[in-house]
Design a protein around this nucleic acid. Structure first.
Length: 418
RNA sequence: GGAGGCGUCGCCUAGUCCGGUCUAUGGCGCCGCACUGCUAAUGCGGUUUGGGUCUCAAGCCCAUCGGGAGUUCAAAUCUCCCCGCCUCCGCCA
């Protein structure tokens, strides 16, 4: 949710942000108009309420003979108030809708344009080459007895998979490695609920453009989260925080309908309906947000480097940002079977946009103000397993185990086909 | 799932039966000032949050007693729905 004061003071900045995103700047002017109308409605209703309050007191004070006339007046005012309040409620709803239609203002330096207009910031490691044909992660995983998508489909449908044997152990290894390094870096570990109320989903902005992506349990009015960013962000909703920053590393299963991605990444476990993820989430002073964002990115890079995965870092263009994000970096790993870069992690600076809607504030020099929230993937486990298998495969079908994972995998230096 | 109890401006608390200066009581904590050799103690004042108005300063106004709706001239107080917590029973990994 955008700051209405910023909007009033500098609407052109918001319009420019809209243009950078390739979205309609007219929503900015619609919001300005809605804001003005709401303020007019509030002023009128407040005034009438003040009159009615006085009239109501007068009823009590009135003498026996004055009473009927005074009561009449109070009743008339009550009707007027009711009508003015209805108009105010309408203006409030219009304002809210207009406010939800305006995404966060992008930060300086974010490249304008859409999905293909990203900027590559750096590449870590070389694109690997292999002097043997090579298998994709599903063939490798099947041979290792680590991934079973056929039975996943039989039991749950397409885009579901079982992780078995080394696959299951690899998942646990990655969770432990991710959580361990997060704790070491000062993040508070959290196991988060995967089912949340509508308010949590709405407050984090996932019921907007991405509503079709979200699973809903109709009978219980609960949603399955697509990322633990949702419960982590909602964790402190409505609170006043002291002693910023707060840093969390949340583990949860993630559920996505993948409604708009028919035919995309259908093979293997790159894009599935259910996967597990360790997500970092930070609440900081808005002045510290950009520095915190760099920290998150650094953590992501360190994690991928430790897994000996070659990757590149891109800055996502304005049009490809989520509505809450003001800047976003993705780390993309090289996927040998498809000879392309695949998004493994993503970190967004949401400035105070998300916190404003969730009511997460802290006491600053000028009173209570929304904090800044940031999120970043530490490890999306399924995809990381897919990349690990492909990148570290060898001609004989075995897979090299990076040193950092060995303590969690009974010291194994390689995984062998069964 | 069944029965009962509870939710008050940071924390605790009065008020709710029987609607009206509730403009929400008192204590603790916190902030300021005074007093004091320092600390403590004491005294005085302040201390929810959001919004509106305004030279965005003071001031004034409106809302806010878990959330929402209703009844009424008037709701912390009455009615209904929802949320949360507690106790007991049932069921359960």
């Amino acid at each position: 949710m955008i700051d209405l004061r910023l909007l009033r003071d500098d609407p052109e900045r918001v319009r420019a942000s809209q243009r950078a995103r390739g979205e309609d700047p007219a929503v900015v002017d619609a919001l300005l108009a809605a804001d003005e109308q709401r303020r007019a409605a509030v002023t009128r209703a407040d005034g009438l309420r003040a009159d009615q309050k006085a009239a109501s007191q007068a009823v009590r004070a009135a003498s026996e003979e004055d009473r009927p006339a005074v009561l009449e007046r109070a009743k008339a005012l009550a009707a007027e108030v009711k009508e003015a309040e209805a108009k105010q409620a309408e203006a409030d709803a219009t304002l809210r809708a207009a406010q939800l239609a305006v995404p966060n203002v992008v930060l300086d330096g974010v490249p304008a344009g859409g999905e293909q207009d990203f900027v590559v910031l750096e590449q870590v490691g070389e694109i690997p080459t292999y002097d043997f044909p090579g298998l994709d992660h599903l063939d490798l995983g099947t041979a290792l007895g680590a991934i079973d998508t056929e039975r996943g489909a039989k039991v749950s449908g397409s885009r579901f998979a079982f992780l078995t044997g080394w696959g299951a152990l690899l998942e646990l290894a990655l969770i432990n490695l991710a959580m361990g390094s997060a704790v070491q870096a000062g993040y508070n570990p959290v196991i988060a609920p995967a089912l949340v109320r509508p308010e949590a989903m709405e407050g984090t902005g996932f019921l907007g453009a991405h509503a079709a992506e979200v699973y809903k349990l109709e009978a219980d009015d609960l949603y399955l989260v697509g990322t633990s960013e949702v419960p982590l962000a909602a964790f402190h909703s409505g609170e006043v925080l002291e002693d910023l920053p707060y840093r969390y590393a949340g583990f949860s299963s993630c559920f996505r309908r993948e409604a708009g991605s028919h035919g995309k990444d259908t093979r293997g476990i790159i894009r599935v309906h259910q996967f597990d993820k360790v997500e970092m989430f930070c609440l900081v002073d808005p002045a510290e947000a950009e520095a915190e964002h760099q920290r998150l990115l650094a953590n992501e890079k360190a994690f991928l480097s430790a897994l000996e995965i070659p990757f590149r870092v891109i800055e996502v263009a304005a049009g490809d940002l989520g509505s809450s994000a003001a800047r976003k970096y993705d780390c993309e790993a090289w996927l040998p079977s498809q000879e392309r870069w695949l998004e493994l992690t993503s970190t967004s600076n949401c400035t105070d946009f998300q916190a404003r809607r969730l009511g997460i504030r802290s006491r600053g020099a000028s009173g209570l103000a929304p904090v800044a929230t940031l999120n970043g993937t530490l490890c999306a486990i399924g995809r990381t397993i897919a990349v690990l298998l492909e990148v570290h495969q060898r001609a004989d079908g075995s897979v090299h185990v990076p040193e950092v994972l060995r303590p969690y995998l009974a010291g194994r230096k390689e995984l062998l086909p069964q």
